[in-house]
Amino acid sequence: MKDKKTLTFMLMDAPFENARTTTAMRLIDIAARRGYDINVFAYEGAVYLPFAAQKQHANAVHGHDVVQEDHPLPREWVEAVVQEAAKNGGRVDWVNCGLCVDERGAVDTVAGVRRGSPADFWKMATSSDNTLVIATK
């Protein structure tokens, strides 16, 4: 692809807590639809974004069962952007900070996620066309 770009994103927010996660995944999705190569370095609570044990739940307050509630799961978003990028000729290299994973026990992830260190973020940033750090508040 002539206009193929490589973008790196650093994410720091844990899932289910902040709109930054949604915006970050929207940005990654746009890049994936363009077939860009995408690097994601998940730091701190963001290592839970691809956590495999996330489960949908019912909402008794609203009277919804699991299906009706259809609660969104970030691990599915991660899987979706990995697949979308591949479909369009790009790829997502998603690296979870290993120390952050160990601290939180967030070892089990969806496919396409690997373990790394902040050194990987440096390598990603230096080999990318651009980098966006979406820090916690």
């Binding site: 206009d3 770009k5 973008l7 915006t23 929207r26 940005l27 746009i30 890049a31 363009r34 860009y36 066309d129 651009n130 980098t131 966006l132 750090v133 979406i134 820090a135």
Partner: peptide, 17 residues
């Protein structure tokens, strides 16, 4: 649209969140 952000990133803008 949010695509504008990806456009600018791809274009090499210095980006600050």
């Amino acid at each position: 649209p949010l695509e504008t952000v990806v456009d600018r990133l791809a274009g090499g803008c210095k980006a600050l969140w």
